[in-house]
């Protein structure tokens, strides 16, 4: 029998999904670990068995998260440890796996145990493909957000462990919020620009569009590399995965890793001058046009309404 565990932070949707998945795979024997921001009390709803409390972990410090995870797991780690893919997995997942000599995988969609062997399906080639892996007898897995249902979980107060919180990873640290101030995660409308815009000046014109539509300003990897946008604005597998009501992609050809990052959007509208751009295959509405020429007309049309 494979021992299944789950490590989550807080009780957001992705944490509940992973806890539910752990119970589905390991039944009541699933070992659940919770990392909490103080105060701890109201987080009992997550139904985790053990918890530690970290003070002031708003910025998700990797060293403190790793120490907390190691304290929770103790000397006998479960065979399969599930972690929501995202900042927590980024900070501790693989390193924890290495320290307990387990393989690791992330962007995992489905997990199954067949004949005592772990079978996982994950994305590959920038979202162009899906790979099914025979993951052997144990692994640390980053579970893709939204891939599993969050079930009703039993209510039980977790056992809060004594924990000596170590120093943060970086000394003399200073957190800086991006000048862009975009909160893509919560935005209802996202206007994103890519290399097809051709210039920083053209990218800046999107700011006005975002303001008009009451949305946030996103970017493709190319636009970030060009320095037109800041890294926190990047949408994609390795940037932010977003799920707004409306995603307006302008001058983005649609590299698969970008498409994966925005695939959760409700309505996707694409503007690109290349009528063969793959973005159109991922869009609900497509406009084949040069943005610089279209924009003055669009501004007029929006104002005229």
């Amino acid at each position: 029998m494979m021992r299944v565990g789950a490590l989550v932070r807080g009780d957001d949707q992705s944490a509940l999904e992973v806890l539910s998945l752990a119970r589905a795979l390991g039944g009541d024997a699933a070992e659940t670990y919770l990392i909490l921001a103080a105060p701890a009390a109201q987080h009992a709803a997550a139904g985790a068995a053990r918890a530690v409390v970290l003070e002031g972990i708003a910025d998700a410090d990797p060293a403190q998260l790793l120490a907390a995870a190691q304290a929770l797991i103790g000397a006998a780690p479960p065979d399969v440890l599930l972690i929501p893919d995202g900042p927590l997995f980024e900070a501790v997942g693989a390193q924890l796996a290495g320290s307990i000599d387990r393989p690791a995988a992330r962007d995992v969609g489905s997990v199954a145990i067949e004949d005592g062997r772990l079978q996982i399906v994950k994305g590959a080639f920038g979202g162009k493909a899906e790979v099914t892996l025979d993951a052997g007898e144990g692994a640390v897995l980053g579970v893709r957000q939204g891939a599993h249902q969050a079930d009703e979980l039993p209510q039980a107060a977790p056992q809060v462990l004594e924990f000596a919180q170590p120093a943060p990873l970086l000394s003399g640290r200073r957190a800086v919020r991006d000048a862009s101030g975009e909160d893509l995660g919560r935005a209802k409308v996202i206007v994103s620009g890519g290399r097809g815009l051709g210039s920083a000046e053209a990218y800046r014109s999107l700011r006005e569009v975002a303001n008009l539509l009451g949305g946030a300003l996103g970017a493709s990897r190319a636009a970030v590399d060009e320095g037109w946008a800041s890294p926190s604005q990047q949408v994609g597998i390795t940037g932010q995965k977003v799920a707004p009501e409306v995603y307006l992609a302008i001058g983005i050809s649609g590299a698969s890793q970008h498409l994966s990052g925005m695939s959760g959007s409700k309505v996707v509208i694409a503007v690109n001058r290349d009528d063969k751009a793959p973005i159109f295959a991922a869009a609900d509405v497509g406009v084949v046009a040069d943005w610089q020429a279209l924009w003055p007309e669009l501004r007029r049309a929006l104002a005229g309404g």
């Binding site: 290399r195 097809g196 190319a222 050809s253 649609g254 290349d274 063969k276 751009a277 793959p278």
Partner: peptide, 10 residues
């Protein structure tokens, strides 16, 4: 032509 989504024969 970086970023082109065409192939040589498209």
């Amino acid at each position: 032509f970086r970023g082109s989504q065409a192939s040589r024969t498209t």
